[in-house]
Design a protein around this nucleic acid. Structure first.
Length: 558
RNA sequence: AGCUCCGUAGCCUAGCGGUCGAGGGCUCCUGAAUUUGACUCAGGGAAUCGCAGGUUCGAAUCCUGCCGGGGCUUCCA
């Protein structure tokens, strides 16, 4: 059966046309992060787009660090960015570049512009320049230095490069048009003096190119055919093209798409940094962070993030995706890949009164029923078990209730059917301390001849075999879907104070001790949990990745 | 206000002049099945295609105007 061809997004259509018309024989895209922060969910869209589109059209993608502002950049970020991209599953081994590698060429480009009479050294202060820039509806005025001779510009620019002038004393500007309706075209600054140690070029340079002078030319140097960026750079495109035309270099084409927003998440590097610095979270990789490293630690599988980005699509409209959609992608991926284990978050002791004191049975249980050829393991069953507090009520609330209550029977998953006879309650606190049940001897899972049909199935753990662990329950970091969209309120006001709650005595089946750090498991009937990187066999720590869908909770809410 | 981009259900998206009395996904609702109230399956609800004109035998698709929303006035990227 022919699969219906997936439609092309608008960028893929452009590429497809360029290939069909012969404008390009093959394509090259690039992902150009500035190494001044960690990659987040928004970047993952750009990554998936650039690498995905290249893959689709048999092209290639460069990772290019846009490291032209040493003030904020560092090797730490360079490493983290690469790790995140590779974790998402994209190979960049032999295609890693740095804008800083082009500083020499960029300098030559600047010289070329000066010689063509298209760039000049300006001695004005930043304030003076701002004053001459004009306004949104007022044309700017020419700088008094705009008409300097080529020779003077050449020597002054060389002086800038040689460190003859203090930081900020002069800048190199492109000579475009001070009356241009697009503010970015009013003689933009293209080089500034900044004595700042660069993480790669060290102290080789004391002048650094601005974004507009570095980005397009770097694209061009690498023969990038399609330079995909977010909408905020739309106004930069005329400048991007102006430099390429006037320099007469390879014409890369910039195409803008809307960036991805996700409800209850923020994607401003500055704001994320504030969360880290203020100690709202434990670091860039805190499982509540929308960073790729945070999502990794949380247990989100890379494929889920990729699927999410692919399903989100690529357009130029403002895009705000429901965080529930992301979580659904995570569940879908985890459902097919994770093993199910027995876990009890809030342990309540169950004593099987008619089960022998010292008897232990190995019960067979499937690891992951979604696999084509499922494998099995065993878990111990004994007289004293734990079930979850939420699975017992002193009285069934309604006919839909399928769990345990006095007089009710229930199936213990992969174990026996039990009937509740009695329970022990602390009369002062009202807390249920213990539930007493009888098991049905011929109801053993897989060989049940009892004929009983309990409505509910509970998860359980043998008390004396249980492993106690810490479980971190994460909730959304903000309690407002768009914390940064309020004109009169700071996003920090919306931080969810209850975004983390810790359970210290979660009971797990003993097989968890064999699981590796980072592994994600389904706690049956509860959710997906990833073993934290700080977890040890002596003290296991799990991060809740996402809950399972919970229809019962929905019914109760009504 | 000047430039620029965008406007299809609560959210994302398909659509490229007739096959659209607008398709898909998420969400929502109902039912079936179930040793996970998960997964799966069946069905259902939800869209004045921003508005108004125009072109055309025919417009979500083309044109014009209007309305609404976003971005831009850093020696950041």
């Amino acid at each position: 059966m022919e699969e219906t061809k997936k439609s092309l997004n608008f960028i893929e259509q452009i590429i497809s046309d360029d290939l069909a018309s012969g404008k390009h024989e093959s394509i090259i895209t690039r992902f150009p992060p500035e190494p001044n922060g960690y990659l987040h969910i928004g970047h993952s869209k750009a990554i998936c787009l650039n690498f995905g589109v290249a893959e689709r059209f048999n092209g290639i993608t460069n990772l290019r660090y846009d490291d032209t502002n040493p003030e904020k950049e560092s090797q730490e970020y360079v490493d983290a960015i690469r790790r995140d991209i590779e974790w998402l599953g994209f190979n960049v081994d032999d295609r890693i570049y740095f804008a800083s590698d082009y500083f020499g060429k960029l300098y030559e480009f600047a010289l070329d512009l000066i010689k063509k009479g298209l760039a000049y050294v300006d001695d004005s202060t930043a304030e003076e320049m701002a004053g001459m820039k004009g306004d949104i509806d007022k044309p700017g005025t020419d700088s008094p230095y705009r008409s300097r001779s080529i020779a003077e510009n050449l020597s002054l620019f060389e002086g800038m490069k040689n460190g003859d002038f203090p930081d900020g004393a002069r800048v190199l500007r492109a000579k475009v048009d001070m009356a241009h309706p697009n503010l970015l075209m009013r003689d933009p600054v293209i080089y500034r003096i900044k004595r700042q140690h660069h993480h790669r070029t060290g102290d080789d340079w004391c002048i650094y190119p601005m974004y507009d002078f570095a980005h397009g030319q770097s694209d061009s140097i690498e023969n990038i055919t399609h330079s995909l960026c977010s909408l905020e750079f739309e106004n930069h495109r005329p400048l991007y093209n102006w430099f390429i035309e006037n320099l007469g270099i390879f014409p890369s084409r910039q195409i803008e798409f809307s960036r991805m927003n996700v409800t209850y998440m923020i994607t401003s590097k500055r704001k994320l940094l504030k969360l880290v610095e203020d100690g709202v979270v434990t670091g860039w990789d805190d499982p509540r962070m929308p960073t790729i490293s945070g999502m990794r630690r949380r247990g989100y599988p890379p494929m889920a993030i990729r699927t999410f980005c692919d399903k989100a699509g690529v357009t130029k409209r403002d895009q705000t995706l429901d965080i529930g959609f992301l979580e659904e992608c995570v569940r879908q991926e985890l459902n097919r890949t994770t093993d199910r284990i027995m876990a009890v978050l809030n342990p309540l002791k169950v004593v099987i009164t008619n089960y022998p004191e010292d008897k232990v049975e190995d019960m067979k249980i499937v690891n992951n029923p979604e696999e084509e050829n499922p494998s099995y393991r065993t878990i111990p069953f004994s007289r004293e078990l734990y079930i979850d507090h939420s699975d017992f009520r002193e009285e069934a609330p309604n006919r839909k209730y399928r769990r345990l209550a006095p007089g009710k029977i229930v199936r213990l998953k992969s174990g026996y059917i039990i009937e509740c006879e009695d329970y022990v309650k602390d009369e002062t606190t009202g807390e249920i301390l213990e539930v007493r049940c009888k098991y049905v001897e011929n109801s053993r899972s897989g060989e049940d001849t009892s004929g009983l049909k309990p409505k509910g199935t509970l998860s359980w753990v043998s008390a004396k075999h249980a492993v106690s662990a810490e479980v971190r329950l994460y909730d959304r970091l903000f309690n407002d879907p768009s914390p940064t969209k309020h004109k009169d309120r700071d996003f920090m006001e919306f931080v969810n104070k209850d975004s983390l709650s810790i359970l210290n005595d979660v009971k797990l089946e003993p097989s968890v001790l064999e699981r590796k750090s980072g592994e994600c498991l389904q706690f049956m009937r509860i959710g997906y949990f990833a073993i934290d990187e700080t977890s040890t066999p002596d003290k296991m720590i799990f991060n809740r990745t996402v809950t399972l869908k919970d229809t019962w909770a929905k019914i109760q809410r009504k």
